[in-house]
Amino acid sequence: MIPSAFTYERVHTVDEALASLAANPEAKLIAGGHSLLPLMKMRLAAPAALVDIQAIRNLHGVREVDGQVVIGALTTHAEISAHPVVRSLLPALAEAAAQIGDLQVRNRGTIGGNLAHADPSSDLPAVALAYNATLRGLSPAGEFALPADGFFLGPLTTAMPEGAVLTEIAFDVPPAGTQSVYQKVPHPASGYAVVGVAAVIGTDENGCFNYVRIGVTGAGDVAYRAVAAEAALMGQPPTDEAIQAAAGHAAEDGVMGEDLYASADYRAHLVQVHTARAIRRALP
């Protein structure tokens, strides 16, 4: 497991990072390294240069601003899952981050790397979709702010401009009274999500659903919002039948993937079952 030769540079500002990327089209950013290095060791990726952004101070940490929780791209999964603000305002994010890989992975891996890498089995894309996150950063063309909805284009492909640095992720704090959960089926080998469902759910004074956002990851090439299921649930009473019926639509907005572990049919079934379970868990 020895990667091809590469050069290594540590930068201290986003501008330096942009300059290094611009100077060398073969260069890649490295944050926690826990997606990139495995690929390099298998020689599935062979960047000629690594630009280490860990030392960029202002990309670390969690802040609360104007109804949003803004998380620096370099904040680790461990920091996120332990952070009191995240735990109280974005519990599904805390729950998801706590289930990523193992302790070492959570201590190194970053939210920015996770979302920028866009592994179709990553946990965090589902959460970003459910919380209506905005991904902000800098590219050679200037600042960008992209909604999670539309950010994930395919396996390892995002809407982020070439040569860009993702700097922070802003999560909408969901309306008061909503509950949010993350429900995961981990692959027994990799620990990644075979299926992951993030749901933010609100009910009105009659108990009927009045706020529903559902993000699904792992099931196919790319994480998606289960729009059909969301629509089917809105306005419904919180009965088992209503939940079951709505969850039955949860696979419709995605293209189910297939691998040795789970067929497309089974994945669709898991998406439906775990969407229903997520909704039930999120009921007050």
């Binding site: 027994p188 080998a189 990799s190």
Partner: peptide, 16 residues
């Protein structure tokens, strides 16, 4: 061999 790494060959883990 399709199961050539620990990413797809599932070793039992203590938590199971």
């Amino acid at each position: 061999l399709l199961t050539g790494t620990w990413m797809d060959y599932a070793m039992p883990k203590a938590r199971f």
